[in-house]
Design a protein around this nucleic acid. Structure first.
Lengths: 206, 206
DNA sequence: GCCTTCATCCCGCAAAAGCGTGATTTTTTA
DNA sequence: TAAAAAATCACGCTTTTGCGGGATGAAGGC
């Protein structure tokens, strides 16, 4: 008998998963929470085998909640649950200790399969999620890693600061800011500020 | 007895709403579809009182599907269903003939209430959705309307083109492009390209 | 017919960004 | 500890933006 706990702020999702999993004789619902605080509260006195966790919660993001859960209760398997199909989210959840990534358009069959797999210590990815993960792993689509300083300069550019203002703020020379800017252009394959900021926002680098 | 039909590509959402509404004695489930094509197919030979419609579908966006439904079957009430809480989406759905906007974190009570209200010919907004709509209606938060030319110039800037290139593309002088640029800065209250593009992407003006 | 908005164009100057090329010093990592 | 990566600074030159003023014609509402 596998106990499943749900963390999701959408009542219909909780209700839907409950309804779908009630039909499974080897799965038992341990309970649910609609936010991270209630979830953490619950596990002080209880436990479960698997948590189905939405990555977007009202009081905390799923990535951080996952880290906390896995740190305090490593035996609990976390299955990320999301409508978003973006490689960055998926990767972050996996790095935080999740055992898999399930898209909300998954059917009963898929959810049950995923739960069984993670209970065996394996990982599960929805097909599309696997594709998304793969595509960001491929060299073509991968975003080259930016250094700390480059990110700092980038967010300041996005805030509308000029090189001079950024230089003053970071206590470096304008030439250095310019160098970081050049590197950003080269790494992200853009040729001016407009393309840089567009790329940054669309790939949420800010 | 009110018949309710669901269009949503998430199995758990359909299952959840079914489960929640089965407890209501004056509501009857008419059926469901996981995409726009199946939905339209269904209504050739059937009908319903209310459609709960997700705004993001795999084959079409909810706005267009809503338009089609209301054009062919004006008697069917459409209630938009979404996780997104953005004024622009809400407004577009309402303009397409929807009778309300329901967020997916709504509980049983709220969903039932919304269905009953729209059946009476009234409109329903989730609290947060109402707020979001209001905030974009307020003069402070409203995005000033951009002219056709301004939008054209904006997308070309976002594509990384310089004033010279845009001028050549649109067969106008660089001074004119510059004028449009000045107007964009004034209207959107930004002071350089970085802020302009950031604002444009974040408020999906592209 | 008048007024407003839109789109167009012009000029000039100052500020900022873009680009090449190079170098030094930390810091990190293998 | 040696090599690699990151952060720093420099200089000169070109291109592009940003900004302050204008001005004109065309379209549409009142």
């Amino acid at each position: 008998m596998t106990r499943v706990y749900i963390v999701d702020d959408h009542a219909v999702v909780i209700e839907g998963i409950y309804s779908l999993l009630q039909k499974e004789k080897d799965i038992e619902m341990a309970g649910y929470a609609t936010n991270a605080a209630n979830c953490m509260q619950y596990f002080i006195n209880h436990t479960t085998d698997v948590i189905l966790m939405d990555i977007s919660l009202p009081d905390m993001n799923g990535v951080d909640l996952c880290k906390i859960i896995k740190k305090n209760y490593p035996g609990i398997m976390v299955l990320a649950l999301s409508t978003f199909n973006q490689g960055t989210y998926i990767r972050k959840m996996m790095e935080s200790g999740a055992s898999g990534y399930l898209l909300k358009n998954a059917g009963r069959q898929e959810i049950v399969e995923a739960i069984h797999l993670v209970m065996k210590g394996k990982t599960y990815f929805s097909f599309d999620a696997g594709q998304a993960l793969k595509s960001t792993t491929d060299q073509q689509n991968a975003i080259p890693p930016l250094t700390k300083r480059e990110k700092e300069v980038l967010v300041n550019i996005a805030d509308g600061l000029t090189n001079i203002q950024i230089a003053e703020k970071l206590f470096i020379s304008t030439d250095t800011v310019d160098s970081h800017r050049k590197n950003l252009h080269a790494k992200l394959n853009v040729k001016n500020t407009a393309m840089l900021i567009r790329f940054a926002v669309e790939n949420n680098l800010l």
